[in-house]
């Protein structure tokens, strides 16, 4: 089972690096933010996989926080792009 999970983790890493193409290419800023968000989701799943492969349950906690941070990062970056400010009325 461990080698299977290793395979899945490697696959995820490969797929995440393919996403880097969109982050590099753009063409809009939002394309890049989207690519980073997608990579973040894959990283989060990768962390959980690694928790199983290395038998480190603590990584699951890291993944939980990563999932939250990934969302916050995306929303803040997007909002900053949209309004050009981080303060004030966010509606």
């Amino acid at each position: 089972m461990d080698s299977f999970l290793w395979g899945a983790a490697t696959f995820l890493l490969a797929v995440a690096s393919v996403c880097l193409y969109r982050a590099y290419r753009g063409p809009t800023v939002l394309d890049r933010v989207l690519a980073v968000n997608v990579i973040g989701t894959k990283t989060m799943v990768l962390l959980v996989l690694l928790a199983f492969v290395f038998d480190r349950p603590l990584y699951v906690d890291v993944a939980l926080v990563y999932a939250l941070l990934n969302f916050v990062t995306t929303v803040v970056a997007t909002r900053y792009f949209e309004t050009g400010a981080l303060e004030g009325d966010w509606q």
Partner: peptide, 16 residues
């Protein structure tokens, strides 16, 4: 968390 945040993030991006 993913079920809740993923569509929201997508919507935030699309709205921007």
């Amino acid at each position: 968390l993913v079920l809740l945040t993923s569509p929201t993030a997508g919507h935030a991006l699309a709205r921007a």
